[in-house]
Write a protein that binds this DNA or RNA. Structure first.
Length: 487
RNA sequence: GGCCCUAUCGUCUAUCGGCUAGGACGCUGCCCUUUCAAGGCAGAAAGAGGGGUUCGACUCCCCUUAGGGCCA
């Protein structure tokens, strides 16, 4: 049984890179009918926050990355996830006993030791090492303290951290599914802290304990953790545990080649939501950052993605995030929606644009007419607003189209014509207007352009005749009148 | 500074020693068309550099260069 986890630190929103890692884990689990676990690594009490936890959960929910397992909730402690019929995530801060237990084991077996060096002392050592051009690693001052020395430190009231005793010789090899075998010399690994003086575990330790206890089979995570892996492997060995398989995903970079960060624009998943992206589009795009099929296909339905996802298709080199391609992809997903779905997805944006209470049927039709143009849901209100609000006449449209020679006369005739057309359906209108043009020796465009500007205020828009039908006779006549007054 | 990773069009990528180097975004042109789109067709655009290995290297090895990561 395949078991994977996504293990974010709640020190900020869920960013694009984290979302991609979560997605790959989720896809891998679904592909192999495995289990996907969410583990919140909140042992850094200073930087962790509840707001971050909420943002991460909301982001995962939006992306449809639900997890399959979690701790039993204590009675009375209900979270949102419970109401959603989901599991709670695991929180490392609620598992401190377990880490302590294994620190004790390592201490007992002499595979770890207490270190009484103060931050100031460590700092001084580091500076000295740098001055002497030695690698700034822990020198092992407390590696072999005698019992007497220990007691001495204790009576002085010094608090100890616990360090893992690294072997000095040989090398540790990481067998990475994506990168192959990567070797690290043990003498360059340092005796890293596994338990802080305050008693909490460090990242590299808690991670190992949890991955083991949660029976994780594949650790799929960002490239930045590759260098931590040999230290973690030593902990597995020290505790007598079999390590999982590792797969390190390449990083996601900004357009300038540096690690993707805030200065490159939106990096928070939720920002993409508010910018009008569809979660399925973001998922599809993210899947293609660092992964591809042999035929380089671009668009995948959710189920297809699960069926095709494969760690072997993962890229070793970092990928640059391309907002333009994401937008294109969002457009293709928007065009796949029915107009009902598009209206539903755009509802929050329509609402904040003051179009929350317009009649449903005309809204559906207006949105349907504009759908092919939409790349972001945020554009929907702007594209349909003139159907429901008074037209705002663009200055250049007035000058170039309404005030064009002959336009005034055409509008006058058209207004008279539209007053008495028997029906006001697209096909009637098209027949009437084209007939008018033919009868007056006009090219259809000569009439169509001024009418478009007159009824919508702009030069761009959907098919004119469909647009007129949706607007209805009353509004059309009224607006042509308004436009005439501008000429 | 030490260690590690990476290197194909501007970007995402295909290629697992035979390549006229394929696809997608973006860009340009044409077609369709009442505008804007969408769609269709066409085009420009790539193997970082240097050594090897091989009948043959984008593909394998080494070095250099560049970018990135981790440790502080």
């Amino acid at each position: 049984m395949i078991r994977v986890r996504f293990a974010p630190s709640p020190t900020g929103y869920l960013h694009i890179g984290g979302a991609r890692t979560a997605l790959f884990n989720h896809l891998f689990a679904r592909r192999h009918q495995g289990v996907f676990i969410l583990r919140i690594e909140d042992t850094d009490e200073v930087r962790s926050s509840h707001e971050s936890v909420d943002a991460i959960l909301e982001s995962l929910a939006w992306l449809g990355l639900e997890w399959d397992e979690g701790p039993r909730l204590e009675p009375g402690r209900s979270g949102d996830w419970q109401e959603r019929g989901n599991f709670a995530p695991y929180f490392q801060m609620r598992r401190l006993e377990r880490y302590r237990q294994y620190v004790e084991q390592l201490l007992r077996e002499g595979k770890a030791y207490r270190c009484y060096c103060t931050p100031e002392e460590l700092d001084a050592m580091r500076r000295r090492a740098q001055l002497e051009k030695r690698p700034p690693r822990y020198e092992g001052r407390c590696r072999s303290l005698t019992e007497a020395q220990r007691r001495d430190h204790e009576t002085q009231g010094r608090r100890a951290s616990v360090r893992f005793r690294m072997p000095d010789e040989d090398a540790t090899a990481v067998e990475d599914v994506i990168r192959g075998r990567v070797e690290f010399e043990n003498r360059l690994l340092q005796d890293f802290v596994i338990q802080k003086t305050a008693g909490g575990p460090t990242y590299n330790f808690a991670c190992v304990v949890d991955d083991h206890l949660m029976e994780i089979t594949h650790v799929i995570r960002g490239d930045e953790h590759l260098s931590n892996t040999p230290s973690q492997l030593q902990v597995y060995a020290g505790l007598g545990w079999k390590p999982p398989q590792f797969a390190h995903l390449s990083m996601i970079l900004g357009p300038d080649g540096a690690k993707l960060s805030k200065r490159h624009g939106a990096t928070s998943v939720l920002e993409y939501k508010t910018q009008g992206f569809l979660p399925q589009a973001l998922r599809n795009y993210l899947a293609l950052l660092g992964w591809a099929t042999p035929d380089s296909r671009q668009l995948f339905e959710a189920a297809e993605l699960i069926g095709k996802f494969d760690l072997k298709g993962c890229q070793k080199n970092p990928a640059t995030f391309d907002p333009q391609k994401l937008q294109w992809m969002n457009g293709t997903y928007i065009r796949k929606l029915t107009r009902e779905e598009l209206v539903r997805e755009s509802a929050p944006f329509l609402e904040s644009a003051g179009l929350g209470r317009v009649p449903r049927e005309p809204l559906l039709r207006a949105v349907g007419l504009e759908a092919e143009k939409v790349k972001l849901l945020t554009e929907v209100p702007r594209l349909v607003d003139f159907f429901f609000k008074d037209a705002v006449y663009e200055q250049k449209a007035v000058e170039k189209v309404l005030r064009a020679p002959g336009a005034a006369k055409i509008l006058e005739d058209i207004r008279a014509l539209l007053q008495k057309t028997p029906g006001f359906l697209e096909k009637d209108l098209e027949a009437a207007i084209r007939g008018f043009c033919a009868g007056n020796n006009l090219k259809p465009a000569q009439a169509i352009h001024p009418i478009r500007v007159a009824v919508s205020g702009r030069t761009e828009g959907p098919s004119l005749f469909a647009m007129l039908e949706v607007l209805g006779r009353e509004k059309v006549l009224e607006r042509i009148g308004a436009a005439q007054r501008l000429i």
